Simulated scan of single mutants.
Amino acid sequence: MEDLTRLIISHERIENIKNNNLELTKEEVHYINKVMRIKNGKEIFISNGEGSLWKAKKVKNDCLEIIQLKKPYLFQEKENYLLGIAVVIPKSGFEDILKMCTEIGIDFIQPLFSERQVNKNLNFSRKLLRWNSIIKEAVEQSERLWKPSILNGMDIIEWLKSRNNQERVSISITREETIYDLNHWLRKQQEFANKKGGIFWNVIGPEGGWSSKEIDFFNKNNFTFVKLSDTILRTSTASINASSILNQWRIDFKLIR
């Protein structure tokens, strides 16, 4: 595929394009003209973050002409087996988690709150805007066609209570006994995956560890503990490790089906 600059444009904006011309926002004008220095007449790629990719030509500083709007240059079906990382927001490093999990191929990122969390005083709606912007940039950089979703923050116990039968959840742990590592747990899920698809989650806890109340809840509700490593990992390291394991499992699973 050609090595062209990419720009993520929401599906709603793509649907409302008239005469194949896309008017750019101030931020997009700055990116195209000042950062990437795209000249009039040059082509770039436009993606809606939902599997479709178009070629577009810059016709003015604030306008792109979409080439064959009704027939995308490339389309990728959504995965049947979706991957999620649920992370108790650490004091620092969460933005790196967003970037790298996006680049690796995670489909859902769930920020969590827990009893031993260090950083609880967040302006969450403001943070969510910034986090979505970071994810968008990582999608453009990594040339993904599907943009992952970052969900509203939730308490770990309330989030677990809201899971449905199309989701499978493993909880990473360090000092508790477990018979599984994440790879082993994922292989045990393959019969479920064969039948239904669904979302496969790994939950990363706070750097201070899960509280006794949270551990009791996990045990009483039969959530599976998994290990990511024989060493103690920081939240950011654990998130990247788990994301890589999840993504490699999906690649391998599709090859053997």
Rank of each mutant, 00 (worst) to 15 (best):
V29T: 09
I67L: 13
W185K: 06
L122A: 00
N121Q: 15
E115N: 14
N21D: 02
N33H: 01
L186N: 00
L246P: 05
E143C: 12
R187Q: 15
K188A: 15
K26R: 06
N241S: 13
G49L: 09
K55L: 15
I171K: 02
L74V: 12
L255Y: 13
Y73E: 11
L7I: 09
S125K: 12
E65M: 09
G84Y: 01
N152L: 12
K220D: 14
N33K: 01
F75G: 01
L255T: 10
I173P: 01
E28C: 00
I14S: 11
S114E: 12
L22F: 06
I173E: 13
V118F: 09
R13H: 12
G49E: 05
E12Y: 13
R175Q: 14
T25F: 05
K147M: 15
R168T: 03
T174V: 14
L145V: 11
G51C: 04
L233W: 02
K39F: 12
V139W: 00
S211T: 11
E23M: 10
E191V: 02
G51M: 07
I215H: 08
L151H: 08
I134R: 01
S239R: 11
G208H: 06
W146F: 15
W131N: 01
G153T: 10
K120M: 15
F113N: 13
K78D: 12
M154K: 12
L160K: 08
W146E: 11
K60Q: 15
T25Y: 04
R175W: 09
H11S: 09
K161C: 08
L122C: 03
L7D: 06
L69M: 10
L182C: 01
L4Y: 14
G49S: 07
S142T: 01
E12M: 08
T231V: 02
G205A: 10
T102H: 02
R6T: 09
G198L: 10
P111Q: 05
N202C: 13
N183G: 02
S10W: 07
Y31E: 03
H184S: 08
W210L: 04
I9W: 07
S142I: 02
G209T: 07
I171P: 01
Q110S: 01
N202T: 12
R6K: 11
K26M: 03
L151S: 07
G49N: 06
E115S: 10
N221I: 07
D3W: 13
H30T: 05
T231E: 09
E140C: 00
N132E: 12
N183H: 04
A86F: 05
E65V: 03
E28W: 00
Y73V: 09
M1T: 15
N221R: 08
W249F: 13
E191Y: 03
R144K: 15
A238L: 06
S172H: 07
I173H: 04
G205C: 11
E214W: 08
I67Q: 05
K91R: 15
K71E: 14
M1L: 15
V59H: 07
V35E: 08
L228C: 13
N164D: 15
N194C: 08
E23V: 10
H184Q: 12
G105S: 06
